[in-house]
């Protein structure tokens, strides 16, 4: 799905847990998420920590859209 959106010329960041799969199916801008059932949540963390994690990773995804790349790239996130 991400690939077809990008094929139409729109830059797209895919946020997902299995970054290797995203690479294999041909996504170009990839940001790792925290887990499968709650990609941007963490029930073990405090609400503040969870919010900081979510906001940080979304920021990385936004920045990725503004980053020129020449190959498939998995953008680094803080733990």
């Amino acid at each position: 799905m991400a690939k077809e959106i990008e094929r139409s010329g729109l830059p797209i960041t895919i946020m997902c847990n299995l970054t290797n799969i995203a690479k294999t199916v041909g996504s170009n801008r990839i940001v790792p998420t925290f887990s499968v059932p709650y990609p941007l949540g963490n029930p073990q963390a405090s609400p503040e920590e969870e919010w900081a994690m979510r906001k940080h990773r979304v920021e990385v995804a936004v920045d990725a859209l503004q980053t020129p790349i020449t190959e498939q790239t998995v953008f680094a996130v803080k733990k």
């Binding site: 799905m1 959106i5 797209i12 997902c16 847990n17 995203a22 998420t33 859209l65």
Partner: peptide
Amino acid sequence: LKDRGVEAVILTAT
């Protein structure tokens, strides 16, 4: 998206 003037996308997958 193109019809609506969108120029970039963030997609979340599970």
